[in-house]
């Protein structure tokens, strides 16, 4: 089998991998922000809810999270009379990965927020900004920049976790590789998986490059 055939077959799964990556990250970040907000409020109830959520989500293997989303979510929705059995598998994949990663992201945001100097907020207030401007213009950008190294690791983890969506029957790059390997009755299996590993590696290196550029751009802010 030609190397080019392996590469083109594997790359046919790339759009699914990237779609999963982008949307799961966006939703995970949104949920993560919500959980971080909950845990930072001066309320024991909110704090305990957020801890419970984190304990459950972070103790669950991503693979299991995907299975639970795929088999559990339709049953949950059926309880309130909504039938989501014909939702696309991609949607379940995104839900499973988003929930799985929301816990890690919320901890990254929370710890970054706590490490922003309180004086920054006070300084914004005393120059006459209202609290919401102070938050969005001064505190939030610094929080994101402090969280950046953690976010980078989480994005890379998410790239790798997208390979697990085979369990709900989605055809991403990894799935294309197993299909191809099965078609060939066991020949070239090593080659297929080595090429697959190299493609994932390239994606991760590209992500690392992007983050390196951002960090360089803001190197004077985060010191």
């Amino acid at each position: 089998m030609k190397l080019s055939r392996i590469i083109t077959t594997l790359l046919s799964g790339l759009p699914v991998t990237l779609t999963l990556l982008v949307f799961s990250f966006i939703f995970a970040a949104a949920i993560g922000l919500g959980i971080a907000w909950l845990s930072l409020r001066n309320s024991a109830v909110c704090y305990n809810i957020s801890r419970l959520y984190l304990g459950l989500v972070r103790g669950t293997p991503p693979l299991l999270m995907l299975l639970l989303a795929y088999y559990g979510l339709p049953k949950l929705f059926l309880l309130v009379g909504i039938n989501i059995n014909d939702w696309s598998k991609l949607l379940f994949g995104i839900v499973g990965l988003s929930v799985g990663w929301s816990g890690y992201l919320s901890e990254a945001f929370r710890s970054a927020y706590l490490s922003v100097d309180q004086g920054q907020y006070e300084a914004a207030l005393v120059v006459g900004m209202n609290p919401s401007d102070a938050f969005w213009r001064i505190i939030m950008p610094q929080t994101v920049l402090i969280a950046l190294p953690n976010i980078e690791n989480l994005v890379i983890g998410l790239v790798k976790a997208t390979s697990l969506v085979y369990v709900i029957g989605l055809v991403d790059m990894y799935s294309s590789a197993t299909d191809l390997s099965n078609q060939n009755q066991g020949v070239y299996q090593l080659e297929i998986f080595v090429v697959l590993a190299l493609i994932y590696w390239m994606i991760v290196l590209a992500i690392e490059w992007v983050f390196r550029s951002i960090k360089k751009e803001y190197q004077y802010v985060t010191v």
Partner: peptide, 13 residues
Amino acid sequence: MAMVFQNYNLFKN
């Protein structure tokens, strides 16, 4: 009013 802080508190970003 305005205030000047001991630790300057210039906006880092």
